[in-house]
């Protein structure tokens, strides 16, 4: 039966298959066994991550953050079944392939940059909504965010990704997520995002500051403490490269 599934992608820790589950396009995420690590450790890590992922997806729904719908969890086969967005692009690919290539268009205006600003705002708001609900993503990178058209476009070129009014941001990959109310974990979550963006998108150096700005402005609820903690985590980071 497994042979019928079409493998979509093999990531670092899971294989992704496409299938049809109860008439819906479905993505199966299978966390395959890692032979390099002790089998007890492997089993406990895998079980914990499947649980985290399922839990956070559901919690995000109540927080108003868009995620794929959860269909089924199968611990035996180390699988999660969830909604598959057939028309989607990761924010990473969006920045590298769409924004960079469409920077100078016929009107001479760099409108893809404006689109990126809106995307940055959406990211800041989504992360803030998660943190307000004590959801720590744990692996915030531009590969773990998708842009999905609100209504199907059918377009084959990049234009659909520049029509910002028809796009929404979907957060994925909650394997490293957990629930915690501490400012420390929120600060680290932001720091992980900053580091990921610096290393991957160094040609857009102010991307993170725009995300942070929308994170800050989204609501007034004690955001100061989180941002102070974030600065502290950052400082710890700079101090770290000490002894060779």
């Amino acid at each position: 039966m497994d042979e019928e599934y079409k493998i979509l992608k093999q990531g670092a820790e899971a294989k992704l298959y496409m299938c049809n589950y109860l008439g819906k396009p479905t993505l199966i995420k299978e966390r395959f066994k890692k032979n390099y690590r002790h089998s007890d450790l492997d089993t406990s890590i895998t079980k914990e991550r499947i649980k985290n992922e399922a839990r956070s997806i559901v919690r995000c729904k109540t927080a108003g953050v868009k995620t794929p719908c959860l269909y089924l969890v199968d611990f035996e086969r180390r699988r999660i079944y969830m909604q598959h967005f057939e028309e989607s692009i990761t924010v990473k690919d969006f920045i590298i392939n769409v924004v960079s290539k469409n920077q100078i268009n016929s009107s001479g205006e760099t409108d893809s940059i404006k689109v990126l600003d809106v995307v940055a705002k959406m990211i800041g708001e989504a992360v803030r909504k998660m943190h307000e609900n004590n959801i720590i993503h744990g692996d915030l990178t531009s590969s773990n965010m998708l842009l999905v058209p609100k209504s199907p476009t059918g377009a084959i070129d990049d234009s659909k990704w520049l029509d910002i009014d028809n796009l929404e941001l979907v957060m994925i990959d909650f394997g490293l997520s957990f629930i915690d109310s501490s400012t420390e974990d929120k600060g680290v979550d932001l720091y992980v995002l900053e580091r990921a963006l610096i290393s991957t998108h160094n040609d857009f150096p102010d991307l993170f500051s725009k995300i942070l700005e929308s994170y800050r402005n989204f609501s007034k609820n004690n955001v100061k403490e989180v941002l102070c903690k974030f600065e502290e985590v950052r400082a710890r980071g700079r101090k770290r490269t000490m002894v060779g």
Partner: peptide, 10 residues
């Protein structure tokens, strides 16, 4: 079993 602490790529 010991604490296992991976945060993204950190």
């Amino acid at each position: 079993h010991l604490p296992y602490c991976v945060k993204g790529m950190d």
